[in-house]
Amino acid sequence: MEEKVITVTSGKGGVGKTTTTANIGSALALLGKKVVVLDGDIGLRNLDIVMGLENRIVYDIVDYVEGRCRLRQALIRDKRAPELYLLPTAQTRDKSAINPGQMVQVCDELRKEFDYIIIDSPAGIEQGFQNALAPADRVLVVTNPEVSSVRDADRVIGLVEAQQKGPVQLIINRLIAARVKKQEMLSTQDIMDVLSTEIIGIVPEDEAILSSSNRGTPVVFNGKSPAAIAYRDIARRLIGEDVPLVQPQPTSWWQKLFGRTE
């Protein structure tokens, strides 16, 4: 089966699932794919604001599931890429508004039209997570180089494998190379040793991320910031290109001196 539905999850909150979903979805769209990013966090809508599309929501996925609109009406077109859409979630409902079966049904509908459906899973391992996992062909687990998120990632990887949803791949997010070098932070190798899961990308800590969410413009749309490069590489790996993993290196003094601030 073609791996169209990609679920981005983590267990722990705040590790960068939404940022990752927005950037990978946008990067795939910039590679010419027809992409929809789907917010899986009912009641805590956020993918819309990170993508800068919050003012354009009329209908959401719950409206569609409950028959108040057609799927096409709920999809918001992002004009910054040729074929990029957001399927927002409901802000005033809770996780029980949709069940895993309905999620599979919605994704089956989207599969007919899109090359990729990227689902931003909520934190936790409850129903919202189960909803996001149910239609997945491929699962990306986001972790930070930090004990609590690595532990939660292990738990989530176990749950995903128990449901035979695969393949599972790891994104190490917010790695600070200088601190790894000083052995103040878990390295990529440490995390690989602990989780024994394939790594599909290493995203360095990057100031550009905060300003990009301030503006509602995912970093992959403009720029050569380290995180943008890392996200574009992940997108290329997802479409099957052979892009070698690059270990982030500490920024040198001259990079700091001439580095741009955003």
Binding site: V147, V150, R151, G158, Q183, E184, L186, S187, D190, V194
Partner: peptide, 19 residues
């Protein structure tokens, strides 16, 4: 010992119990 080493070691032990 470095805090990263301690982190790795603590994770390895706790994950054995979690799993």
């Amino acid at each position: 010992r470095s805090s990263a080493q301690t982190a790795k070691q603590r994770l390895q032990l706790v994950l054995v119990h979690d799993r």
